[in-house]
Design a protein around this nucleic acid. Structure first.
Lengths: 337, 337
DNA sequence: CTGTTAGCGCCTTCAC
DNA sequence: GTGAAGGCGCTAACAG
């Protein structure tokens, strides 16, 4: 391994001078700098960050804790995070919690040990509060994205769940629907709670009574929603929903697939609206969706994080709410319109 | 920051003993181990990897260099890589080269500096050879996935491009096609070359003359293939293709979208087959595809890499070829079948 | 089984 | 502008 001493010897300077060159110190004469740089290049020297970190306590490594990189929403988040991190000279450590607090905790210890300068995190659920406290104890800044944690005050990049859900539900109501079901993620996740609350509030505002049989708590993972849908279909005619609100992409995709499999016409028999369904295939999508700014969750999140790390952020925690865009498509539009 | 000395003092042992407990050394009495572990827990001690790495030269960090995490193929690779890495106690640094050698090189320096124990890499193109040499010079093992590099002998996990392409093309020939176009990625990428060669060979074997007007070199990024397709459509009736072979997912998706936009019926006017198109939406796909074992590229790749790092691999480089699965669908099936 | 000594590669501090 | 000394937190090598 080539060290600064090797460079120093060959360039006839002290190690300290080499260090100054590497760190782009101003107080170096043009001549010695050129000389040192030449040797660095010649010997293919690359600084050893471990040694550096030991002193500076900075690794230039950020951790991205998401629930699943396989979820297209988080894939975009990751891409945004990585673009900004790279641009600012940071590297990104990838962690998938799989919506699981224990797995998240394990990663947390690893990333503290590694010496992450900061963490961008979409927490698994409300339990993650413990992990946030741990980060704070270790003096590691973090930014929450997508999901908030009760009583945790920190920089956040969130979605306008209340407004977007309301618009989605009001759209269904305008289309004549009264029996609207919701297939949701677990209520220990803030986004699930917020979307459900807005769903309930919107129905009430429009004088529609809330039927608990139409509220299904499922998962945000790419899991089976067959049971939830079967239960909805088994409801007596008078209760059976004419529309379904899917609160994330996996739920939305799988709901559509199951309805097709049951030969249920969308939207004639059941209309469907969903959060976040990407159009990654050859077909034009027919699904009405609320598209969140996934890329910006990552991009802006990393920006806030780095500002915080580098002391460029205001003391007060910042909360950024990114609006979603609703795409109205066939899955929720009446023929007669 | 809590150090081993804090633990040592409080537990009335030497720092060395604490170090042994952390590293699960056998030569520690049950009693002192318990005592030390208690203090570690009490003080919330987490080892400083930077200090550790400085001595051991091991970081337990692996780098994953892919061209774009946004490409669903690589998303699966990443997920497989991460699962195996986590299982083996390693963390994963994410790098997107964007099919760009310069960007890849920049990451390469960063990851060497950080001290990656190894690199799993889908190289940007043949130029990446320089980066492989650099890794070798720094004694960092790497495993090539998906794409090979001429004259680089190392562990590899590759796809059966020759056989799968042949089956795809023979399927089209069986369907009666003689004018088959290929829209390919850049030929500086090994997979593009292999698929193109197999396309040519298969045509020849079946006595079909190769028409260079039907061979289009495009990109593997999510870029525009409009021009390529337009050129194909502008061909005189006698040359115009009746089938298109798209060599990756983005090309496949975009080809389908453009054909739809041109109101060209698939497969009646033009049949389409593609590599790797995921079905991430609510619709059932109609596209005939060769599905690669993306997850296993990552999972097995990391396994080979860790074996290599930990000295558990045979000296001779291993080459693993994962077969693809062809899904025949409407986009390439004649009505009359 | 446990402790002592030395040093990993670099940067901080303080001289010159 | 440049250099010398010391130490970051930890573990290898050795001693007992």
């Amino acid at each position: 391994m080539v060290t600064i001493y090797d460079i120093a010897k060959k360039a006839n300077v002290s190690a300290m001078t080499v260090s100054r060159v590497i760190n782009k110190s101003e107080k170096i004469s043009e001549i010695t700098r050129k000389k040192v740089e030449a040797v660095i290049k010649e010997l293919n020297y690359i600084p050893n960050n471990s040694a550096r970190n030991l002193i500076t306590k900075k690794t230039k490594i950020l951790s991205l804790m998401i629930t699943d990189i396989g979820n297209p929403f988080f894939t975009s988040v990751a891409r945004g995070a990585e673009d900004k991190a790279m641009q600012m000279g940071y590297q990104l450590l990838l962690c998938n919690s799989d919506e699981n607090f224990e797995k998240e905790s394990k990663y947390m210890d690893m990333l503290i040990s590694t010496g992450s300068d900061g963490v961008l995190i979409a927490p698994a659920n409300d339990n993650s509060k413990k992990n946030m406290k741990k980060l704070t104890k270790h003096g590691i800044p973090f930014v929450l994205i997508d999901r908030r944690i009760p009583d945790i005050d920190c920089d956040q990049v969130l979605s306008d769940n209340e407004a977007t859900t309301r618009r989605l539900i009001e759209h269904l109501i305008k289309q004549g629907h009264r029996k609207i079901a919701i297939i949701n993620g677990p209520l220990v996740v803030s986004t699930a709670r917020e979307r459900q609350q807005s769903y309930i509030d919107t129905l009430k505002i429009h004088g529609i009574s809330v039927n608990n049989d139409l509220i299904k708590e499922s998962h945000f993972r790419d899991s089976d929603v067959t049971n939830s849908i079967q239960e909805l279909l088994n409801l007596p005619e008078s209760e059976r929903p004419t529309a379904i609100f899917a609160t994330n992409n996996f739920i939305g995709m799988n709901t559509m697939k199951i309805l097709y499999r049951h030969n249920i016409k969308v939207p004639e028999e059941i209309a469907v609206v969903s959060y976040d369904v990407p159009n990654y295939t050859e077909n034009e999508s027919i699904l009405t969706v609320a598209e969140q700014q996934a890329y910006n969750f990552g991009y802006i999140g990393i920006q806030l994080l780095i500002e915080r790390i580098e002391g460029a952020a205001p003391e007060k925690a910042r909360k950024i709410v990114l609006p979603s865009e609703i795409h109205l498509r066939a899955s929720s539009l009446n023929q007669r319109d």
